[in-house]
C-alpha cells in the first residue's frame, strides 16, 4: 500500500481510537462517581432523619402511602415544563408532603411543616427559637441566608429562622432523582 494511504488510514484509526477511549473514560467516570454515593448513603442510613404524621412514616426517600393517613389531603400536581413526570403535592392540615415516582415507586420527596401544631421527632416546632434548634441538633449545620440545614444520610432538615424565631421547617430528600 502506498505511504500516503497508510498515513491517512493511520490518522483515521487514531481518531476512532481517540473517540472510543473518550467514550470509555466517560462511562468509567460515571461508574466511579456512582460508587461513593452509594457508600455514603449506606453508611449514613443509621443516623438518617425520620419524620411521621399521624403515626405514618413520611420520611423523605421512603415510599409514600397516602391511603395510610386518615386525614384527607388537598391534592395538586406540579408537572415539568417539557419532560414527563410530575411532583404530587398532598396538603394536610399541618404538613405538606411532596412525592414523586422514583424507581417506579411513589416516594416522599419533601415534608413541609405548615404550623406549630406539629414538631420534629426531636421536639422542635415553628415558633421555637434558634437556640433550641442548635441545642437539639448541634452546630454542624450549613447556613444560607436565614436558613440553616442539617444533613443526615440522604435527608436534609432545614429551619428558616427570622428574627430568632423558627418560621418554617422542611425535610428534603437530598439524593439525585
Amino acid at each position: 500500500m502506498n505511504k500516503k494511504v497508510i498515513i491517512v488510514v493511520g490518522i483515521l484509526v487514531v481518531i476512532i481510537i481517540g473517540i472510543v477511549v473518550y467514550l470509555f473514560m466517560q462511562s468509567s467516570e460515571d461508574q466511579t462517581t456512582a460508587e461513593p454515593q452509594n457508600i455514603v448513603s449506606n453508611e449514613a442510613q443509621e443516623e438518617k432523619f425520620s419524620v411521621s404524621y399521624q403515626n405514618v412514616d413520611i420520611t423523605p426517600g421512603q415510599p409514600f402511602d397516602a391511603d395510610a393517613i386518615a386525614e384527607e389531603a388537598e391534592y395538586s400536581q406540579i408537572p415539568s415544563c417539557a419532560f414527563e413526570g410530575t411532583d404530587n403535592v398532598s396538603t394536610y392540615a399541618h404538613v405538606e408532603v411532596t412525592s414523586a415516582q422514583i424507581n417506579g415507586k411513589e416516594t416522599v420527596y419533601s415534608v413541609y411543616f405548615l404550623d406549630d401544631e406539629v414538631s420534629t421527632p426531636e421536639g422542635v416546632k415553628i415558633t421555637d427559637d434558634r437556640a433550641k434548634v442548635i441545642e437539639t441538633y448541634g452546630d454542624n449545620y450549613e447556613e444560607a441566608g436565614n436558613k440553616i440545614t442539617y444533613t443526615r444520610g440522604d435527608v436534609q432538615l432545614s429551619f428558616m429562622i427570622e428574627n430568632d424565631v423558627v418560621t418554617s421547617i422542611e425535610y428534603v430528600y437530598a439524593s439525585e432523582l
Binding site: 395538586s76 405538606e96 405548615l114 444560607a144 436558613k147 418560621t167 418554617s168
Partner: peptide, 12 residues
C-alpha cells in the same frame, strides 16, 4: 386549577 401547593417561605 383545583389546588396549589402552599406558598413557602424562602431563605433568599
Amino acid at each position: 386549577v383545583t389546588s396549589l401547593p402552599i406558598q413557602r417561605r424562602l431563605a433568599e
